[in-house]
Every structure is written in C-alpha cells, then in structure tokens.
C-alpha cells in the first residue's frame, strides 16, 4: 500500500441550475490504475476535469499529494487560488484528451518540449532528450520532427500521452482517449497505456473500453447521475454487479 496521491471529498459541481456532481468521494493510492465508467451525463468526465481545474467546482475538496487543489478552504471561507498557483498545480497532473489537442504548429518533439522549457524551465537540449526518450517509449522516435497534420489519429494520441507524461506528473488523467479513434488505431494507444501502468504510473481513466477496464484496472468506479454508484475490483464487479444500474449498464455496453 503506497501513499495517497489523490483525495477527493464531497466534490460538488453545478452547471447553472443542473447539479452535475452531487458529492463524490474518492481516494487514489500510488500506482493504482482506476477506470471510471458510466453513461454520458454521469459526471465522470467532469470529475476528471475538476482534478486539474479545467472545470471549477463549487463544493468539496480535492487534495493532490496533500496539497489543496484550486481552492483554499479556511474554516467557513472558500477562496480560489491565484492563476499562477493553479497553473503550477496543473503541472502536477498530466491529461490526455479525447481530441488529442496537439499544437498543430509544432512538431511532435516540440509539443513535448514546450511544457518542459516553459514550465519546468529546462534548457532546450535537456528538454529535447527527454522528449525523444518519451517518443521512443511510445514507439514514435522516427516521427519526432513530424507535424501533427502528418500523423495518424493513433500516432497523435500517443504523442499527446507522451506530452503529458514527459512532465513527470504525480497522476495521469485520461479522458476517453480512444473514443475519437478509428477502431484499428485503438490498440496501439491501449498498448502504450498498459505499458505505463506496468511501470507503476498512477492513473485515472474515463473510458468506454470495457475489456481494457477489466484487464488493466486495479479498480473500477461506476458513476451514475453525479455520484459514485458502485466501485471495486473489475473482476468482481463486472461478473457480479451489486447494483441494478451497473447491471443494466454492463448489458448495454455489450461486455461479456
């Protein structure tokens, strides 16, 4: 049992009138690989995006390595941290997006180097060698000087993952990273993620890939309507779901 990397307590978020997250509690230990599943609207992506403050949240507390994320709660008052502070905290996590979001005007290597040079203040040569190392790790060493426009979807996503992980984050966040890919390209991305998991990276993945969740996750969280409905070892949960909603969800997602 390692240390607690992430501690979410009573997370609440509203979009106008609609309450998207209704009090979510979650603890993530070092090295855990957690898949978050659920239908659209369940709040799973929103929860992920609160962790790196891409979404504001109105209630509850998120702690990363003991640090309060985004807001400072002191007794009764709640104060949003400064932009500079939040930017620093964002660098502690790495996120890979469904739409990759690679910077189109930079090569694969430059995409990875940007954060290293600007945020971690490395020299360009040092950043370059780290970028090349991670590109090699995801199998794209030969494409270091290619632009995103010259890469396939699967390749772009692998570069995007390398970009996030090169920053040496404490926690990796994957937001449906295979949903926008053609089926034949999904495998290469899942391979990379499996490899990172095997290396001990702490990960939270919002995913539709049930087989992947079953095979690779140490824990699965099933969300429904803004709360955690059921969680546990996938090998138990998927075979003997305790709640009816999870049973329905598993049936409709054609997992066998």
């Amino acid at each position: 049992m390692g240390k607690t990397i992430l501690d979410i307590q009573g997370l609440r978020k509203t979009y106008g009138q609609h309450e998207v997250l209704k009090g979510v509690d979650c603890m993530v230990q070092e090295g855990e690989v957690i898949s978050i599943i659920g239908s659209s609207g369940s709040g799973k992506t929103t929860m992920l995006r609160c962790i790196n403050m891409l979404e504001e949240f109105q209630g509850g507390k998120i702690s990363l390595d003991g640090e309060e994320i985004g807001y400072h709660v002191d007794g009764g008052t709640r104060r949003r941290k400064s932009e500079k502070e939040i930017a620093r905290q964002r660098a502690l996590t790495g996120m890979a997006f469904q739409q990759f979001n690679l910077f189109p005007h930079m090569t694969a290597a430059e995409n990875i180097m940007l954060g290293l040079v600007k945020v971690k203040r490395m020299s360009k040569p040092a950043a370059r060698s780290i970028a090349e190392k991670w590109l090699d790790r995801v199998g794209l060493a030969a494409r270091a000087n290619h632009y995103p426009g010259q890469l396939s979807g699967g390749q772009q996503q692998r570069v995007a993952i390398a970009r996030a992980i090169a920053m040496a984050p404490r926690l990796m966040l994957f937001d449906e990273v295979t949903s926008a890919l053609d089926p034949e390209l999904v495998g290469e991305v899942l391979q990379v993620i499996k490899g990172l998991a095997a290396d001990g990276m702490t990960m939270l993945l919002v995913t539709h890939e049930m087989r992947f969740a079953y095979e690779v996750s140490s824990r699965v969280i099933f969300m429904n309507q803004g709360v955690i409905c059921e969680e546990g070892d996938p090998k138990d949960m998927f075979v003997r779901p305790k709640t009816e909603r999870l049973a329905e969800f598993l049936k409709s997602s054609s997992f066998n």
């Binding site: 891409l54 930017a87 964002r90 996590t93 997006f97 739409q99 979001n101 954060g115 945020v119």
Partner: peptide, 17 residues
C-alpha cells in the same frame, strides 16, 4: 479550438505563455 487552450492549461502554462 477550445481544446488548444485546455491542452496548454493541462501542461501548466500560464495564460501569457
């Protein structure tokens, strides 16, 4: 696309950067 700003934020860049 909004994703560009989000990706920049995710790696910890400030607005100016």
């Amino acid at each position: 696309p909004r994703g560009q700003t989000e990706a920049a934020k995710a790696i910890g860049l400030t607005f100016t950067q």
